[in-house]
Structure formats: C-alpha cells, structure tokens
Design a protein around this nucleic acid. Sequence first.
DNA 1: GTTGCCTTTGTAATAAAGTTGCGCGGCCTT
DNA 2: AAGGCCGCGCAACTTTATTACAAAGGCAAC
Lengths: 173, 173
Amino acid sequence: MTYGQGTVALPARLPYFQVMVTTAHNHQLHEGEALSNAAQTALEKAGEQWTTMRASVFEALSQFEKPASAYDIAEAVSKSQQRRVAANSVYRILDLFVGANVAMRVESKNAYIANAHPDCMHDCIFLVCSGCGSATHVDDDKISDGLRAAARKAGFNPVRPVMEVHGTCADCG
Amino acid sequence: MTYGQGTVALPARLPYFQVMVTTAHNHQLHEGEALSNAAQTALEKAGEQWTTMRASVFEALSQFEKPASAYDIAEAVSKSQQRRVAANSVYRILDLFVGANVAMRVESKNAYIANAHPDCMHDCIFLVCSGCGSATHVDDDKISDGLRAAARKAGFNPVRPVMEVHGTCADCG
DNA sequence: GTTGCCTTTGTAATAAAGTTGCGCGGCCTT
DNA sequence: AAGGCCGCGCAACTTTATTACAAAGGCAAC
C-alpha cells in the first residue's frame, strides 16, 4: 500500500527539522509528505514493508519537534487512530526504523527522532538543549572518524558511535 | 566520620579499571583503598560529606567490572549491609558522585562506573562492548574539543559532551 | 541541655521506559 | 484448501527513575 491512501492523515502544519552540515556535502533534505516517501523508500530498500501502522508511527514521530519517547508516539498514534495502540508495537517499529536509518535514537533522552535524510548514512551528532528539550541533528564526519579511530587505537572495534552534546541552544542560551 | 572505621569492609580482590589516555598527559590512577580515598577527597572538595552510606555505594560501584545500574548497586549494598537499601537512596548518591566527577554515567546503558581519576576533569569516551558488556574509559581532548567546537559552530552552547562507542572489545572481537 | 535547623537517609508509592510470550489474522505459496 | 510467514494486538512483567514525606543525626544558639 502507498502512503496517503485511506487512514493516514497528512499533517496540517508541516513538521520541520533543523539539520546542519559542517562537513561540506549536500544532503537530500525532506519534509512533510516527501519525508514520508523517503522513509518508505529507505525502509523498503532495507527489505521491509511500509504498512499502514508503520506509516502512522513515522507520521507521528515526524510531527514531534523534540525527541519523542515510544510512549509519546504510542499516545499520538492512539489519538490519530481512535484506538489504543500499545507501546510494544511502537517499539518494534522504532527498532526497525532505527535499523533502516529512517529514525534515530537519542540515547541520553531515551527518545527518538525522524531522520530527515534517510538516504544518506552518517554517524550523527545531537545537540540536546536542556532548556527547550529540542535535539538538533548535526553531521561531522571528521569528528566521528576521529572517534572511531580513537576506539580502534584502544584495540576496540567500533560499530556505532554515540555523540550527543548537552547544553543550551541559541534560543535558550 | 572517616572511611575505614568500623562498618565498611575493604574488597578481598581489588577492582580494576582499564583507562587509556591518548592525549599525552599523566593521570593520577587509583585503585582499591587509594581509589576510595581519592573519591572521598574529590567529594569533600566539592563541599559534600563522605558518609558511611556514600562510602558503601562507592565501594560497591567500584567493585563492578562493568557499568552497574542503580539497582545493581542497591542490591550489592543491601547484601554488604545485611539490610534493604532502596534504589532512590542510591540514585541520590550516584547523582552526587556524577556531579563531583567521582562516578560517571554511561548514557546508552543507563548505568554507572566509578571514575578512576576523579582529580582530573575530562570529557570522557566510553567504549561499550556488546559482547561482554564492559565499558572502557578513554580520554581524548582533541575529539571532545572538536565536538564542542562543532556544537558552538551550530550556535549551541555545549556543556557536557556524551561520547560512547558501541562495538566489540579486543577480547570479544 | 534542650531547642531548632539543616543535611542525610528511609519508606512507600508511582511514573516512565523497555521486554516477553503468545495468539490471531492477512497474505502469499503450494 | 492447507501450510507458512509476517505484522500486529494483547497482557503481563521487568527494569529504570522520580516524588513526597517522615525519621534520624549532627551542629549551633540560646
């Protein structure tokens, strides 16, 4: 099934994502329906199905402007579907999303955000504001490469760097 | 009261901590009783008391070879004290420890480890092994500085970088 | 020395985050 | 039509974290 048919409503106000790229190269940036389409493509490329439920979860996730917990999403989807959606279903789907680079987990907040450029693989950096709770996504391959290199230097085989900076954003500063 | 009087037993086998320093400078490394003493000094320098309870929590924490959850510690202290010690007491003390650089939190594991060099302030890096669950502590000021700089470049005021690398250690590789 | 204050810990309840096992129903294949 | 796989529902449960308030102990002023 394709996104947009039947049950899944489009957002009234489009969600936005702040993305800054310090290493020079272009990302395909997505928002709104285009973002969902990109997510669908990415998920299917990973050999997974884009179901109504998954579309709803992604839709809910992408509407949050701050990292959302699985329970936040369960609640949002429950509301939009007029029925109770259990957290564990959401967890399953979020795990899938994270695996397919369609969503990312902010470890220090136990929360998730949609990936605005699922087509492009990066070790991502989150700037987590303690004032407003937002998490800005930044990429910097030089830093992530350095971190991986430091790990290898210590005899460690790096798989997934977690880089999150706690502090205050420009608005809350 | 001073640590070592009366109720708090010293470990039979001393705990160890793997610490690697890639940026060239020396740390004062501590283990066993010396570690506890260093922790006490650091905590008191932060204007906090070194109580029996806090000594016990630090003692328990430092005996774990992997990051320990607050509940792990509560259990260990309960055992060593022959009475039930509630998790929230442990949380309170761990928060204190983290604030005084006496312990550190591994965000992606919801767990804590003792800091083997509380006297020296660093943004720390954890190499978290998915095989054995251990977390090796590494320091690299170049990387953390880079991360802070990247945050500032994005208009963000960095306070605490979180750097954790998931992968496999030399033994589990 | 007893009164009052401040800090620390205890107790209990509750919230938030994450997991497990099992079963149903749809859909594809044979 | 039968068998198998996948996605999801449902319920129960575990683990992690927080809150509010009471009790206990040390220290200082009176």
